[in-house]
């Protein structure tokens, strides 16, 4: 798929243009969750199936997929689980 790396599209998450090479690694070195819909004319789904085992795809699919509220609250949950977290905070 690297041969498509220089192709460019507008990223609906960021609001600027990105190359396909970015979409391949957007999710901490794994592909962006929107890579399939953003690149409808590339054989992305087939490549993903060939490259990653189902359990990896499943786990990636469970990551926050650009829904900001999901990302916010998942981040909040993970930070709350850290030792020493949650002792302060709250409103006024």
């Amino acid at each position: 798929m690297k041969r498509f790396d220089s192709l460019m599209t507008r990223c609906p998450k960021l609001g600027n243009e990105v190359t396909f090479s970015y979409c391949r690694v957007e999710q901490r070195n794994f592909p962006c969750t929107r890579i399939i819909s953003c690149w409808p004319s590339l054989p992305v789904a087939a490549w993903l199936r060939e490259t990653y085992p189902p359990e990896v795809l499943k786990s990636l699919g469970e990551q926050p997929s650009g829904d900001r509220l999901s990302i916010i609250f998942q981040t909040l949950e993970s930070l709350k689980k850290k030792p020493g977290a949650g002792e302060k905070g709250g409103g006024q």
């Binding site: 592909p31 969750t33 929107r34 890579i35 399939i36 819909s37 409808p40 004319s41 590339l42 054989p43 992305v44 789904a45 087939a46 993903l48 199936r49 189902p54 359990e55 795809l57 499943k58 990636l60 699919g61 469970e62 997929s65």
Partner: peptide, 22 residues
């Protein structure tokens, strides 16, 4: 019908259709 990445791990073949365009 907005399948996302997670659906790839499922048994549905529908997402694969995206590989061939709209």
């Amino acid at each position: 019908y907005a399948y996302d990445f997670g659906d790839l791990a499922m048994t549905t073949p529908l997402l694969a259709m995206y590989t061939l365009g709209h």
